[in-house]
Structures are given as structure tokens and as C-alpha cells.
């Protein structure tokens, strides 16, 4: 393994003040927008444009920020809406996995991640799609936890959520990448 990829690996999992602040901001934003857009506590079954924040934060700031944004953000959304942060903990994990997988994009989408702004925007959408499809598989744990049938979970939970969130992801993640890149360049650290 080359020194460069070792470096990248370390960066991906490094936890600094920056990681924690971005993670907390991502989670707070996701929680706020969940509640602002969707007054149905606990329900994950709807179109949630805010969901794009999860793959975006993962993709832009790494798997740890992504996981925290999805996991804590979903729990906070449940908490504020009154459902209780932990009641649907497996759904929070599913959300977290989406952010995590999107954050691993440098491992499976090097070409896009290291390309132009346009490439990075497209890469964000691809990573988001992969992350949503895989991450939400975790909701099949409702089979054990709630005794729901696999077919029920698939048709009433997985498919509607995944379809809704894929649309949000494909449209909004590239827009967010485009909006963020010039600002990032200005921060100049």
C-alpha cells in the first residue's frame, strides 16, 4: 500500500474539533429540517428533501461526520417531535450508515472525488445513491424488532423511503457540492 493511500485512510477516520463541530452542525440541521418539513414523528415514510444533508455531510466531511449526522440527526428529529430519540434506534442507525457509506466515497470513487467540481458533484450523487440503497437495508431489522414481515418492510418502509430519499439525494447533493466548493476555497486553511 502506498504512502498516499495510507494518508487518506488516516484522514478519513481522524477525529478533530472540526470533525465534531461539523458532525454536530449536520445532526442539528438534519433534525431541524426533519421537523420543519415533516410534522409526522417517527415516520420516515415521506419525501424528505432535508435527507440530502446526510449523504452530503458524509461525502464532504468524511464517514464519521456522515454517520453522526444521520444517526444523531434522525434521533434528534425523533426527540424534538416527541417520538423519543431511542425508540426507533434502528432507523437512526440506518440513517447513520447512509452518511458513513457516502463518506467512504474516496475509497470507491477516487476518479470522481479527485476530479473537477463537476466530477465531485456527480460523485456526490453516485455516492449518495449507493449509500441510500445499502444503508437503509438496516431497516429490515424491523423484522425482528417489530415482527413486521419482510415483504411489508420492503413495500411499506424500504421502497418508499429509498425512492423518496434517492430523489432528494440525486437532486440536492450536487447542488450542495456546487454551493459549498467556492465557500470552502475561501476559508483558506
Amino acid at each position: 500500500m502506498s504512502a498516499i493511500s495510507m494518508d487518506r485512510r488516516n484522514n478519513l477516520w481522524e477525529v478533530t474539533s472540526r470533525t465534531i463541530v461539523y458532525a454536530a452542525i449536520g445532526a442539528a440541521l438534519y433534525g431541524i429540517l426533519l421537523v420543519a418539513q415533516l410534522p409526522i414523528p417517527g415516520s420516515t415514510v415521506s419525501v424528505r428533501p432535508a435527507f440530502a444533508i446526510v449523504p452530503f455531510f458524509g461525502y464532504a466531511f468524511g464517514p464519521i461526520v456522515g454517520f453522526f449526522t444521520g444517526f444523531v440527526g434522525n434521533a434528534i428529529g425523533d426527540q424534538i417531535s416527541g417520538w423519543g430519540a431511542l425508540t426507533s434506534w434502528n432507523w437512526s442507525i440506518a440513517n447513520g450508515l447512509v452518511g458513513l457509506i457516502a463518506g467512504l466515497a474516496p475509497l470507491y470513487l477516487q476518479r470522481w472525488v479527485n476530479g473537477s467540481t463537476r466530477d465531485r458533484a456527480i460523485g456526490g450523487a453516485i455516492a449518495g445513491v449507493i449509500a441510500v440503497l445499502i444503508g437503509f437495508l438496516f431497516v429490515f431489522t424491523d423484522n425482528i424488532l417489530q415482527g413486521l414481515d419482510i415483504a411489508t418492510i420492503f413495500s411499506t418502509l424500504y421502497v418508499p423511503v429509498v425512492v423518496g430519499d434517492l430523489i432528494g439525494t440525486i437532486i440536492l447533493v450536487p447542488i450542495l457540492v456546487y454551493a459549498w466548493e467556492p465557500v470552502k476555497a475561501q476559508l483558506g486553511r
Binding site: I20, A24, A28, L29, F68
Partner: peptide, 16 residues
């Protein structure tokens, strides 16, 4: 650090 991140998330809720 993550435990503090939870506190920080609550801190950001009202301002954001």
C-alpha cells in the same frame, strides 16, 4: 468527543 458532540448538537439547535 462524540459524547460532547451530542451536547454540541443541542447547542446548535436553537441558533441554527
Amino acid at each position: 468527543k462524540f459524547a460532547f458532540g451530542i451536547d454540541l448538537t443541542f447547542r446548535f439547535l436553537p441558533s441554527l
